[in-house]
C-alpha cells in the first residue's frame, strides 16, 4: 500500500479518547460521522464531506501536525414548540479525523462549503509532485 492511503484511515481511537476526556459519560461529545469521498490525482487529494445544516461559522477545520479534523455544528430553524415525532439524525454535530501523509502540503489546504457539502483540496508538496525520470543509457 502506498503512503497516501493514510488519509483514508479514520482515527476512531482519537475520537473515543476525546469523548472520554471532555465528559466522563462520554456521550455529550458524541458526533455523527459524515460520509466522505476521497479522490487522489497526481497533484493532490480532494475530499468531499456531507455536512447538512452546518453553516460556515459553525464549521471548524484543523490541521495539526499530520492530523486533519473536520468538525461542524448543525444549526436548524426549529420552531420553539416543536416536538420531534420521527428522528433519523439524532445528534446535531459532525466530527471526523483523518491522518494525512507526509507528501501532502497541509499548509496549502483550501476549503469550500456549499449547500452543506465541504470540499477540501490538499495539494501535494512541491518535492512530491510527479516528475518523469529519464533513463540514461551510457
Amino acid at each position: 500500500m502506498s503512503q497516501t492511503n493514510d488519509v483514508t484511515r479514520n482515527e476512531s481511537a482519537t475520537r473515543a479518547g476525546a469523548a472520554t476526556r471532555n465528559d466522563p459519560a462520554g456521550r455529550s461529545d458524541a458526533a455523527l460521522i459524515p460520509p466522505v469521498d476521497v479522490i487522489e490525482d497526481s497533484a493532490g487529494i480532494t475530499l468531499r464531506a456531507d455536512l447538512p445544516g452546518v453553516p460556515k461559522d459553525k464549521l471548524s477545520l484543523q490541521v495539526e501536525a499530520d492530523t486533519l479534523t473536520i468538525e461542524g455544528q448543525v444549526s436548524m430553524p426549529t420552531p420553539q414548540s416543536m416536538e420531534a415525532s420521527y428522528v433519523e439524525v439524532s445528534m446535531p454535530r459532525f466530527r471526523r479525523v483523518f491522518t494525512l501523509s507526509k507528501e501532502l502540503d497541509a499548509g496549502k489546504v483550501s476549503a469550500d462549503l456549499k449547500n452543506g457539502v465541504l470540499s477540501l483540496r490538499i495539494p501535494k508538496a512541491e518535492h512530491a509532485q510527479p516528475r518523469r525520470i529519464d533513463i540514461k543509457v551510457g
Binding site: P52, M82, E83, A84, S85, V87, E88
Partner: peptide, 20 residues
C-alpha cells in the same frame, strides 16, 4: 435524504438532510 419530522400545534415540520 435522512428525515427528521416534528410537530407543533400549528404545523408539521419536515427536515430533509440533503446536502449538495
Amino acid at each position: 435524504p435522512a428525515l427528521n419530522v416534528g410537530g407543533t400545534p400549528q404545523s408539521v415540520e419536515i427536515f430533509a438532510f440533503a446536502p449538495g
